[in-house]
Nucleic acid binder design. Structure first.
Length: 227
DNA sequence: CGCCAGGGCCATA
DNA sequence: TATGGCCATGGC
């Protein structure tokens, strides 16, 4: 069956990446709120820049502290991660939202994953990737994060440029339809895909020649031919 | 100097 | 629903 084949392919990719890179300890933060703040700050920005902003915010990483912080001070703190006017507003909104509804996963146990995703998506500055990052890493929900790296690797692995422009949820479904809904597995998978791109597949061109991913792609192809 | 990074909002058609 | 302009700093 086609689903079985895809499942085998995706598991092969995971296994090879894990064997090559090991656990990625992706997104370790001191608190859920810090993680949520980071999810906003990292939009279209490098993580190194986000770390500077987070460091500047240390001591104010709670909803109350952030709300009490003057807008100018907040903007100055997050300046390194770009779009600081927008993101400062988003962070204020985030702080207000968390003050009202809670910060930790325990505060949201009454919601189904679908309900919780809609709730976060309704917040200003929270799109699908940001929402899923929060759901997966802060709320412990089994959603699959689709970012530029995910699309790039999928395009490279399966030779379909469609992954670069495909609807977000459609890409996520490629994974979640066949893989067990396992939060830790999804989190590790995402971390491995990013690691792969950062370490090796730095070129945006999904058809790059002499790509070190060639061996990995062959292994996936071999798995595909088994049935 | 130009490109781009762990996106999302909003206006427009 | 699908593009396009816009946001902004920092690393290379």
């Amino acid at each position: 069956m086609r689903m079985q084949k895809r499942k085998a392919q995706l598991e092969t990719i995971y296994n090879l990446l894990f064997a090559a890179f090991g656990p990625q300890h992706w997104w370790e933060a001191d608190s859920a709120f810090e993680m949520e703040v980071g999810a906003i700050l990292t939009q279209n920005t490098t993580w190194a820049a986000v770390e500077k902003s987070i460091a500047n915010l240390k001591g104010n990483l709670s909803p109350d502290s952030l709300l009490a912080l003057p807008q100018e001070k907040l903007e100055e703190a997050i300046r390194p991660s770009g779009y600081f006017h927008q993101k400062a507003k988003y962070l204020k909104a985030l702080a207000a939202f968390c003050k009202e509804n809670g910060t930790n996963k325990a505060d949201y146990e009454a919601y189904s994953t679908e309900e919780l995703r809609r709730l976060w998506l309704a917040q200003k500055g929270v799109g699908k990737e940001t929402a899923d990052s929060i759901l997966l890493y802060a709320m412990d929900r089994p959603v699959f994060i689709v970012d530029a790296y995910t699309r790039r690797v999928m395009s490279r692995m399966f030779g379909e440029e469609a992954y670069l422009s495909m609807d977000y949820d459609a890409v996520a479904n490629v994974f979640t339809e066949v893989l067990p809904k396992d939060t830790a597995y999804y989190g590790e998978y995402h971390g491995l895909l990013v690691r792969l791109c950062k370490d090796i597949c730095l070129k945006k061109n999904p058809n790059c020649e002499n790509c070190p991913l060639t061996d990995l792609c062959k292994a996936v192809d071999k798995t595909a031919k088994k049935d």
